[in-house]
Amino acid sequence: MNDITISIQDKTYRSGHLDDRQHQAIADLQLGVGRNEFVCLLGPSGCGKTTLLNMIAGLDSHYQGHIRIGSQAATAKIGYVFQNPRLLPWYTVRQNIEVVFAQTPPAALIDALLADMQLSDVQQVYPERLSLGMQRRVAIIRAFAINPDILLMDEPFVSLDAPSARQVRNLLYSLWQQRPHTVLFVSHDLREAIALADRLIFLSPPPMRIISDIPVNIPRELRNDEAQIEAFREHLLSQHPAINGLL
C-alpha cells in the first residue's frame, strides 16, 4: 500500500509576462511512494519539481487531480526542508526548532536530534553565526522533529561545497535510518540521489511526466562506497542514455 498516491492530470498557470500565456507545468503524472520509502526526483531545472512538492505540501491547490497522504490527506503532518534553510534570525538554533510546536516542545527529542546532527554545542547560537551547512542541519532537525507523515526535501544541500554536502548527507542518512520516514527528495546530483534513494524518478521537461522509475539496488551498507555509486551511475546511464539529457 502506498503512503503517498499522486495523480495529477493537469497543472497549468499563467506566465505572468506581458503576453500572459498559459504554461502547462505537469500533465498526466502518476506516482506512488511506499511507507518509509526514500524516493529522489531528478529532472532539468524548471521542470516543475518544486511545484510538485508545493502541491503535495498543500501550498498550491490549483491543479486537476488528487494527492493522498496516508489515509487522511487533510490531516497529514508534512515536514518540508526548503532550498533556503529559512531560519528565524532572532531565534537561537534551539528556538528555531522549538517554534514548530504549538505546545510545550519535547526537550528530550530535541536534545537527541541535536546530538544526532552534531549541533548540541551550538544550540544557543543564532543562525548568523553558523555555516550554511550547519543551518541546513537545523532545518533538517526542524522537519524531523514533528514526526511528519511525509518529509519533503527540495535540494537541501544546494550551494554547499562537496565535503560539506557529503557530511550533511551522511548525517541525514544516519538520522533517517534511526527514524524512518517517507521521503520525497529533489536533487540535481545523480551521485547524491544514488547514495540516498530507494528509487530514482526521472522527470521530463514541462509538461512534466515520469520518464523512468528506477530502483537503486546497492545494499545500504555500501552507500558510502564511491566506487559502488559510480559503477551504478555508469550502468544506469549506459542502459538509459536519455537520462543524460534530463540532468
Rank of each mutant, 00 (worst) to 15 (best):
V216G: 07
R86W: 03
Y80E: 01
Q124P: 01
L184N: 10
L41Q: 07
V125T: 13
A27L: 08
N96Y: 10
L203C: 05
T92V: 12
E234S: 14
I201M: 02
G16S: 05
I210Y: 07
R166W: 04
Q167E: 14
I69R: 11
N217F: 03
L53F: 07
F101N: 00
I218N: 12
S61D: 15
L200H: 04
A107S: 06
G16W: 07
L42A: 04
Y91S: 03
A195Q: 13
P148S: 10
V186S: 06
S120D: 10
D161I: 11
R35G: 01
R21H: 08
T75G: 03
A108S: 02
L246T: 11
D111L: 00
Q167K: 14
V100E: 08
Q135A: 04
S131R: 04
W90A: 07
F202H: 10
L196M: 09
M1P: 11
I6L: 11
M117F: 15
R86S: 14
L29I: 07
S164R: 04
D3A: 13
S174G: 03
G46Q: 13
L152F: 14
N36L: 05
N170T: 09
Q24S: 11
R136G: 02
I150E: 08
A73F: 14
E226P: 07
H23C: 11
R136P: 03
Q239R: 15
K49G: 07
I56Y: 04
L119E: 06
P127S: 01
V125R: 07
L29D: 01
P127L: 08
Q118K: 09
Q118G: 00
Y80T: 02
I140T: 05
P163V: 07
F82R: 03
P156R: 08
L109D: 05
S131H: 07
D149N: 15
H181Q: 12
V93F: 05
M208L: 05
Q24W: 00
Q123T: 10
Y126G: 00
L132Q: 10
L119Q: 02
T104Y: 00
H188Q: 15
R179F: 02
I141D: 03
D189T: 12
Q178A: 15
G32V: 02
M134H: 05
S120A: 13
Q64G: 11
L203R: 05
R166K: 07
R129Q: 15
D20Q: 15
I141A: 02
V216R: 07
L113I: 02
V183R: 06
C47A: 12
P106R: 04
L200N: 03
